[in-house]
Design a protein around this nucleic acid. Structure first.
Length: 716
RNA sequence: GAGCCCGUGGCUCAGUGGUAGAGCGUUCGAUUCACAUUCGAAAGGUCGGUGGUUCAAAUCCACCCGGGCUCACCA
């Protein structure tokens, strides 16, 4: 054996050995208990980052259960990542001086497809570098035809159950990305904005002053609203306001929705551009078409010089016009929250648009029950409350996206000229041969694609179902869903809702949430901050084991991980320590005669009496038994970091620093008993460490056993 | 406004009732001995504050201060 463990000589070779040797390939074996984890599919549009490396917890669980003798399946996959990917791709196009509008739908789609397939392969090889025991033979992609079929089927089932509806409602629309989002993809930004106080003349005499953060939208107002019990405005309810500059007349109405304490106690109602106004206006039977189009330009305002102007510029123009006309009373600073596009940062516009929605009420009720009853266990358990709260607050889910890259919604609109059939839709999993509404028209398919999360929500069952039904029966519900706590809302909650709806079973029995990786200052790593640690560089430099261990060592479950290069170095040193223990054991096994120490004659019983030796061995065995028990207990409780810390401390500071030093002379003096006991415990430690640092443990295993032996063939 | 988490040696963090721990850093010493990617030793903490429960509190309870997260609200 070499003096040092050189991971470069082993990692790649060992991974191929495992993969090609079928160690990661799952099969249905009813004589064993199943253990299945479906990998959260990384986006197939970029290199891996440290967030992906955190999936090491899944590898830990998979390898642990393999060593326990369970039949394990860790299913590999990739996500098409709809808007994300299209966004990345458009940046590519921009570099070439092009945009998505230069291509037709078909061309754009197939170009992105090629781009994604190339990235996907890179990404998959990077997962291999991390040592992940993924079953690649069954890998899935969210846009595989059989997955798409399942996704469409789920939509159809939801539709059949009356949980899908198409509605013209306000959606969060990004005028720059050109698509709507669900409420979860809205990034809130706290800003100090302005509150504009505008004086509206009242036809019957006097005026009312309204306070608004969006002065330009008054051009789409349908009413001015006050609280029914607000004494200041009692006499004005029912009066008519004449909108400045355009002289359009709107009523003053009363509704308890108004907070008399805010601003002037009067609210302008713009149903097409504000969710709350939309609701209130609906209640009062009021409506007016939007004054802003989907490109963010003004329209139908009643002011010729404003129509066609971009919203931000229009606001300035209108404010100065109001000021000129003496309608602007004052402007005050105002702490407010801006809804922005999580992708490009553009301020989102609430705009009325016909979209597909999922009524989540019955779905979330079931999901909450499953979580409450611990049919799904959340680890660490503090996230259980959070998940329930998230589910309780879930609102109907807009699943339509106006982008090309995604699964096209399998909904078709009847084109019959018969007025009765206007805007009639039907859902069909396969491309229909005839219109299911009128039976004769040449129906057209919805241009929109599904929100990526709609297919992701089905991932645990869709993936296994497409292997074959025996796998589904055997491995589903899956054992654990392991992912970052940041997507509890976007993903985990939806998997539970949709998974239970479609399979009438929980998609997973446990959820294990890992934390975010941060730098030494506790900051999130980001390219713009320049504090990014590239996992691939670290693997190149210190080996995959070192990186893996550094992400786990000394951390708390679900807590954020502070990662530094120093920590990775420390873990590389640990790997070397493991290597050198093996080297020592190998050397003492052969009973080499070592030079005499001062005061000890060579060839004599070397100072340590047999009884003392036995005593020490007994002590070690007792101590190790406790370690073993604790180790497995930690796994039972999903305390993976604790189990690793325990082994680190035991192997290095007890086994090596203490026991080897104590027993060294005896072992090298030829005590077979000592050598064998030490060897046995060491091998057990290798197994226990293998889930965390698979490469070095396997490398050592091969050194001390026959060449073709694998630690994965051994059992605890 | 509601809920959750965190505040421990210079730095980053483990530690949930019984004499304060690790990694990195610092100081001193050790190399023909499995490993200098090492070993031995040392310095360094009134465990955010106050009060309480207890024979005993970093650990349990209450309040406060500081930092973070989630949800709700946001004209």
């Amino acid at each position: 054996m070499d003096k040092k463990y050189n991971f470069r000589n082993y990692e790649e070779e060992l991974y191929s050995f495992w993969e090609q040797g079928g160690y990661f390939t799952a099969k249905v074996d009813k004589s064993k208990d199943p253990f299945c984890i479906v990998l959260p599919p990384p986006n197939a549009n970029a290199d891996l980052h440290l967030g992906h490396a955190m999936y090491v917890y899944e590898d830990v669980m998979i390898r642990y259960h393999k060593l326990k003798g369970l039949e394990t399946l860790w299913l590999a996959g990739a996500d098409h990542a709809g808007i994300e990917t299209q966004f990345v791709y458009e940046k590519h196009l921009k570099k070439q001086g092009k945009s998505r509008f230069d291509f037709d739908r078909k061309t754009l789609f197939s170009d992105i497809w090629d781009f994604v397939m190339k990235n996907r392969e890179t990404m998959e090889n990077q997962l291999r570098k991390l040592g992940f025991a993924l079953d690649w033979s069954k890998k899935k992609f969210t846009m595989d035809p059989d997955i798409v079929k399942i996704v469409n089927n789920t939509f159809k089932h939801l539709h059949d159950d009356g949980l899908i509806y198409r509605a013209n409602r306000l959606v969060n629309y990004c005028t720059s990305c050109g698509t709507s989002f669900s409420d979860l993809e809205v990034a809130d930004k706290e800003v100090t904005g302005k509150l504009y106080y505008i004086k509206f003349p009242v036809k019957e005499g006097g005026s009312v002053t309204i306070a608004t953060t969006r002065p330009e939208t008054y051009l789409g107002d349908v009413a001015v609203m006050v609280h029914p019990e607000d004494k200041r405005y009692q006499g004005m309810i029912g009066n008519t306001v004449v909108l400045p500059l355009i002289d359009r007349e709107i009523p003053i109405i009363a509704d308890e929705y108004v907070d008399p304490k805010f601003g002037t106690g009067t609210v302008k109602v713009t149903p097409a551009h504000d969710e709350n106004d939309f609701q209130v206006a609906k209640k009062h039977g009021l409506w007016r078409d939007p004054i802003l189009n989907f490109d963010g330009h003004m329209q139908h305002t009643g002011l010729d010089d404003i129509d066609g102007v971009y919203v931000v510029k229009a606001r300035k123009l209108i404010v100065s016009k109001l000021e000129e006309g003496g309608f602007l009373e004052k402007i005050t600073p105002h702490e407010m929250i801006l809804h922005t596009c999580y992708r490009c940062g553009t301020t989102l516009e609430p705009l009325p648009k016909e979209q597909w929605f999922i009524n989540v009420e019955p779905l979330k009720k079931n999901a909450i029950e499953r979580v409450r009853n611990d049919e799904i266990n959340i680890h660490p358990k503090r996230f259980k409350k959070q998940l329930i709260q998230i589910l309780e607050n879930f609102i109907d889910w807009n699943v339509s996206r106006q982008i090309v890259w995604g699964i096209r919604i399998p909904a078709y609109q009847c084109q019959s000229s018969n007025v009765k059939n206007q805007n009639k839709w039907f859902v069909s999993v396969q491309k229909p041969s005839s219109c299911q509404i009128c039976g004769e028209c040449s129906f057209i398919q919805d241009e929109d694609t599904f929100d990526t999360w709609f297919s992701s929500a089905q991932w645990p069952f869709a993936t296994i179902q497409t292997i074959d039904s025996s796998f589904f029966d055997y491995f589903y519900p899956t054992a654990v869903m392991e992912t970052g706590y940041d997507i509890l809302r976007a993903w985990v909650s939806r998997m539970i809702m949709i998974g239970y709806f479609e399979t009438k079973a929980v998609p997973f029995k446990h959820v294990f949430l890992h934390g975010m990786v941060r730098d030494l200052k506790g900051q999130k790593m980001s390219k713009s901050k320049g504090n990014v640690i590239n996992p691939l560089d670290m693997i190149e430099k210190y080996g995959a084991d070192a990186l893996r261990a550094a992400l786990i060592f000394g951390t708390k479950e679900g807590g954020d991980v502070v990662l530094s290069e120093d920590k990775i170095v420390a873990m590389r040193n640990f790997c070397n320590k493991i290597w050198n223990i093996a080297r020592f054991l190998e050397m003492s096994k052969t009973n080499v005669v070592i030079p005499a120490k001062a005061g000890i004659q060579a060839g004599s019983p070397i100072g340590v009496g047999d009884d003392v030796l036995r005593e020490t061995l007994k002590k070690l065995q007792k101590e190790f038994a406790v370690v073993q028990k604790q180790y497995h207990l930690h796994f039972k409780k999903f305390e993976f970091a604790k189990a690793f810390d325990l082994m680190y401390d035991f192997l290095w500071h007890r086994y090596a620093d203490f026991y080897i030093e104590e027993l060294k002379d005896g072992m090298q003096g030829g005590s077979i008993e000592a050598s064998q006991s030490m060897m046995k415990i060491y091998h057990a430690c290798l197994q226990m460490l293998h889930p965390y640092i698979p490469f070095v443990t396997e490398a050592v295993w091969k050194e001390v056993h026959e060449e073709d032996a694998s630690i994965l063939d051994s059992r605890f």
